[in-house]
Design a protein around this nucleic acid. Structure first.
Length: 279
DNA sequence: AGCCAGGTTTGTA
DNA sequence: TACAAACATGGC
């Protein structure tokens, strides 16, 4: 199989910022940048001389073009952010204009963000990697091994003890029950047909999924850019940078998504990255 | 030692 | 409807 290399202009596509802004967990420092694993596919990606570089199998070129959302015009989004007159948003957008919102697999995104609740990013990455190592299918990337994200059927074979030993803590039962549901017929990929509202209600009916995880999954897994996930960092942004008084995170999420509409998800990423900082 | 991390569920009023 | 406590784990 052939290996291909694509170079993209780096003004609105910075690999490091796109991977390190908290939307994805399976990437590892490698060479001049990172190895990224999405579903069962792998790519070597790095920033160099103001360009974003993507190297992968020839047959995966289209997959990663879509994955990195390369058909979308991010200059328009960044310019809108700058014209919003919304506190630090303009500065955050300038700082994070190289971020692209990845088109991730819904099922992987759902499992990943259930793991993310009340947890920190390094730990989330570790837990997910242990699950992949134990249960993922082995694949080859030009002579180097990597593990695909496990199927729900494989996950469903394991008991709660297994998930606890992977470090999931009280989330073990959430993950196990979702795996069993999917293994016995629930197809979360079909949720993509639903409207944003219907999708969120459907996600909220899953044990272990609340408003914030539903918003992340809708945004990162189903491209619902009118979602504005509010976690501890965005609550901080709201209080400290927007002078907000609301206490309820759901209300805060409504405030932002009503204000920013279809650009909510992008702005949220700029603000998150700005507030939390880089790796 | 106690607080925090990309929160959700359950119980109470 | 709104709010508090409980829930595992590990880094600081």
């Amino acid at each position: 199989m052939k290996r291909i290399k694509r170079r993209y202009d780096g003004e609105y596509f910075v690999i490091k910022d796109t991977l390190c802004c908290g939307q994805v967990f399976r990437f590892f420092p490698y060479g001049k940048g990172y190895k990224i694993i999405a579903s069962d596919k792998c790519a070597y990606v790095y920033d160099e001389d103001g360009k974003a570089n993507v190297e992968c199998r020839e047959e995966d070129e289209e997959f990663f073009f879509e994955y990195f959302d390369l058909a979308r015009d991010y200059s328009a989004i960044v310019n809108s952010a700058k014209s919003e007159n919304a506190g630090i948003l303009a500065a955050a957008a300038q700082e994070g204009k190289g971020i692209r919102i990845l088109n991730q697999d819904p099922e992987e995104t759902l499992f990943s963000f259930i793991v993310s609740q009340n947890n920190n990013i390094p730990r989330i990455k570790g837990i997910i990697e242990r699950l992949c190592l134990a249960l993922g299918e082995e694949r080859d990337f030009f002579g180097e091994k990597y593990m695909a994200f496990p199927t729900a059927s494989r996950l469903a074979e394991k008991d709660e003890e297994f998930f606890k030993s992977a470090g999931l803590g009280y989330r073990a039962e959430y993950v196990r029950r979702l795996a069993v549901e999917i293994a016995s017929g629930l197809d979360v990929r079909q949720f993509g047909k639903l409207s944003t509202r219907e999708l969120k209600n459907r996600l909220l009916s899953i044990y272990g999924v609340g408003r914030k995880v539903a918003d992340c999954v809708a945004l990162f897994g189903y491209r619902k850019s009118d979602s504005f996930p509010v976690d501890t960092w965005l609550e901080k942004v709201y209080r400290e940078d927007f002078g907000g008084e609301l206490k309820n995170r759901e209300k805060i999420a409504e405030y932002f998504s009503e204000r920013f509409g279809e650009n909510s998800g992008y702005y949220q990423q700029y603000l998150f990255y700005h507030k939390r900082g880089k790796e």
